[in-house]
Design a binder for these strands. Structure first.
Length: 823
DNA sequence: CTAGGGTTAG
């Protein structure tokens, strides 16, 4: 019988790899050996602070810590990503008389590589001389690959081969990783050929992982990635995690989840990286329940405070919570043990993308810069987007200045975000300036500026850029979507049709965003003849037939198209099938579309019934839609109810006050009007002053109510008087009931003719060419009498008139308006 | 020491 003698667990210390060398030393001091053993144990369990003080203790005792101690400590720093202590060790090593060996220097390269300090890593690598081995080469190749210096990485690989070293699996995996981009994918494929000859493809897990990435990241080709995965003779947790993460990143969320379940059933235990990958996949709509269940498993695995898992959870809850609430996301963020750039960026981005928490995002940024964590280019992109959302270019500029100071200003996505921020704030001149100053204009930059011009109703400029893009850079789905929305915004349906033709020629009509933009364009351009709104509905049906998946946006477009042409039954049909057939939970916008549809067709009671039948309380948007319909149909009772509901949720909503006041005024109930006005005054609510502007003679002319400041004021009012007479002759009757003050009828008519949109139109009539349509912009909704008068003027003067108000555009021609008299 | 992760402008 054989008995094994083992040391008791308390005394057992794992042998260090260098113990053989140590035995050869002649002098062994027991105190030194004991301290060293302690140090190694502390380092191995990741207790770096104590290990460092043990190291100091060794020096204080008069011993010189040996290379093994440094190596073990450094490895632990790399494993736990403790860069601060890593750098401290490096400086201690420089101060010590020790001559670092290859392993220690390689470890230092790896440390600086993981920190992103490629320059320090490079210096160490170059100083190594004879000590350089295959590990040094592969560490350096890998360092360049991870620091965004892919070409440097490839060249270093070739240098190594030229130097006479024969690459092993580590070198191959490092250099292939550098080639995992669209630009260098072909180099990766060439190296793949080399790998096959060496036989590493069949035998090494690292090489397999790199090849999976070559296909997934370099070619977005998940099928080939899966082929590599299936052919690998051995798969470990890293391999599975890599597959799950890449599938998730490329939008194959359900496949990612399937892989995860398969992995678990094969007995692998997911770690922080695996959870991170699969949770990201669960941000996709429809997978949130699974995401919550996985969160439970994360807690059981004691990983809930981990930064990496936390990031994915923050992102998942931000994206998957239906009502856009950030509560769950924030809870996860607040419970995380500590934060890094990514977790800060994840929560800030979550707030920005949820739609209405831009200020919260900026507040968090203020907290972030008080912490030791520095923002990166992703953080700045999101923050600039937030500033654009709230149209605050001044704040955006401040934040951009921070990016300048951190040397991130010229990073593509930061500079592009700045342009987008200006464009969203209506500052097209600044946007254009920033665009022209771009160091490198990519397709995204062009799409932002084209979209900017489109949204800011300068479709001429947008189309001009488009033709440049078309011939020089190339266009993509975003360009088409922007142009379609631009065409829709100014009612340029002819241009829209041209783009539609191009879409068909390019064969991209089956793309979801393009399809949505097309439907939306035809829906918004629903002219009096109903032709285009019908076309929107037709396109939608065709989209379904072609098997393109509709999303929430599609339904907003198609429901509003139904609303524009009064297709009540179809509207109901689509609304029902949205959730039943396509699993899309209706949002407030969809409810608002239905209320609009019912309200427009005069079924106000049905609209109220609809709201009451819903399983949840609707928000102010829906009630405002109802209130608008009440105003058009003069239903005071329901209007009052609707505005009460709005004010319950948004007590200081000026729009609700004004709409209700207008409703009372149209019924001549002046006491009520006065009450509301007083209430508004007390609450210090500012009603935006109505103003209209028009572009003529190469500049913008802006008019307020009763404005007489314009140099051509006399001519304008003369023209206005003449036009008033002309249209009365052909049947125009002033809607004096829309005057919101209690005055005599004759005075009311005067008031009405001082409205800013009429003044702007009169100016347009005397200063623009008869062939071109007159384009007027108004900051508020166009007044009912003005709308009516403009229809008559279009006949009397034979002009095409387009009014873009705060709500929509009105394309008025031959006495008819594209809005079908509902807005 | 050398393979995997989370944040990203249209």
């Amino acid at each position: 019988m054989i008995t094994l003698s083992l040391p008791s667990p308390a005394k057992f210390i794992p042998p260090s790899p260098k113990s053989k060398n140590l035995k050869s030393r002649r002098i062994r001091n027991p105190d030194f050996e004991a301290l060293k053993d302690t140090l190694i144990r502390q380092a191995n369990v990741g207790n770096l602070k104590q290990a460092i003080s043990t190291l100091d203790h060794i020096s204080q005792m008069g011993f010189t810590p040996d290379l093994t101690s440094y190596t073990v400590l450094l490895k632990s720093c790399i494993r736990t990503r403790n860069f601060q202590i890593g750098k401290l060790l490096h400086s201690k090593l420089n101060d010590s008389p020790l001559e670092p060996d290859t392993i220690l220097l390689n470890s230092l390269i790896s440390l600086y590589s993981k920190m992103g300090s490629w320059d320090t890593a490079e210096k160490i690598f170059e100083s190594m001389g004879e000590k350089r081995d295959l590990v040094s080469w592969s560490a350096m190749i890998s360092c360049y690959a991870h620091c965004g210096m892919e070409l440097e990485s490839v060249f270093t690989f070739f240098d190594m081969v030229e130097f006479g070293e024969y690459p092993n699996q580590f070198c191959f995996s490092a250099v292939i990783q550098a080639c995992c981009s669209a630009e260098l994918g072909w180099v990766g494929l060439a190296i793949f050929g080399f790998v096959i000859k060496t036989g590493y493809f069949e035998s090494d897990i690292c090489v397999g992982c790199a090849l999976i990435d070559l296909f997934a990241k370099g070619f977005s080709d998940l099928r080939s990635a899966k082929k590599v995965f299936d052919r690998m003779p051995e798969r470990n947790l890293v391999t599975w995690t890599l597959m799950i993460t890449r599938f998730s990143q490329l939008g194959a969320s359900r496949d990612a989840v399937r892989l995860f379940l398969e992995m678990v059933s094969e007995g692998f235990v997911p770690d922080r990286f695996t959870f991170s990958g699969v949770l990201s996949a669960c941000a996709e709509p429809g997978l949130s329940l699974l995401g919550r269940q996985l969160h439970g498993r994360v807690i059981k695995s004691r990983l809930s405070a981990d930064v990496c898992v936390g990031c994915s959870l923050v992102d998942m809850y931000a994206k998957s919570t239906m009502d856009g609430s950030m509560d769950d996301s924030r809870k996860v963020f607040d419970r995380m043990a500590d934060h890094n750039v990514m977790s800060w960026t994840a929560i800030i981005t979550g707030y920005v993308q949820s739609g209405h928490y831009d200020m919260e995002a900026i507040k968090l940024y203020c907290r972030m810069i008080d912490s030791p964590v520095k923002p990166n280019h992703f953080t700045f992109s999101s923050l600039l987007k937030a500033c654009g959302n709230i149209s605050n270019p001044a704040m955006g500029e401040q934040i951009y200045n921070h990016a300048v100071k951190l040397g991130l200003a010229s990073v593509n996505c930061v500079a592009n975000s700045l342009i987008s921020m200006y464009a969203k704030s209506g500052r097209m001149e600044e946007a254009r300036k920033a665009f022209e100053l771009l160091f490198e204009k990519n397709l995204v930059s062009y799409n932002i500026i084209v979209d900017g011009y489109s949204k800011n109703l300068d479709s001429a400029e947008a189309f001009e850029l488009f033709s440049h893009l078309d011939s020089e850079v190339g266009v993509d789905i975003f360009t088409f979507a922007s142009l379609l929305s631009g065409a829709a915004s100014v009612g340029a349906v002819g241009k829209g049709e041209q783009i539609h033709a191009r879409v068909l020629k390019a064969g991209i009509q089956s793309n979801q965003s393009v399809s949505n933009a097309l439907i939306s364009m035809y829906s918004r351009c629903g002219f009096a003849k109903h032709g285009f709104a019908h076309r929107a509905v037709e396109l939608f049906n065709q989209m379904l037939e072609d098997g393109i998946k509709p999303n929430e946006v599609t339904y907003i477009a198609v429901l509003s198209a139904c609303s524009h042409v009064g297709l009540v039954d179809e509207g109901w049909k689509y609304f029902d099938s949205m959730s039943i057939d396509h699993g899309i939970t209706p949002r407030m916008e969809h409810y608002a579309c239905m209320v609009d549809l019912l309200g427009r067709s005069g079924s106000l009671e049905k609209a109220v019934q609809f709201i009451k039948s819903l399983p949840l309380n609707v928000d102010a948007l829906v009630w405002r839609t109802l209130l608008g319909a009440c105003q058009v149909h003069g239903n005071l009772q329901l209007g009052k109810y609707a505005s009460e509901m709005i004010l319950e949720q948004e007590p200081n909503d000026p729009a609700a006050h004004v709409l209700l006041s207008n409703l009372y005024a149209s019924r001549g109930q002046w006491e009520e009007v006065a009450k509301i006005r007083k209430d508004m005054k007390e609450k210090r609510m500012v009603k935006e002053a109505g103003c209209s502007w028009i572009e003529a003679e190469n500049s913008v002319h802006k008019f307020y109510v009763g404005d007489t400041k314009h140099p051509k004021a006399k001519e304008i009012y003369d023209k206005l008087g003449k036009v008033a007479l002309k249209i009365k002759e052909i049947g125009y009757v002033p809607k004096t009931d829309l005057v919101l003050h209690e005055v005599e009828d004759e005075q009311k008519e005067q008031y009405i003719f001082q409205h800013s949109e009429k003044i702007a139109l009169a100016f347009g009539l005397i200063s623009t060419s008869k062939q071109k349509p007159i384009r007027i912009f108004k900051n508020l909704r166009v007044c009912g009498d003005c709308h009516n008068a403009v229809k008559f003027i279009s006949v009397a003067e034979g002009r095409e008139i387009i009014i873009r108000d705060s709500n929509r555009f009105h394309h008025i021609k031959d006495g008819l308006c594209s809005c079908n008299d509902y807005w």
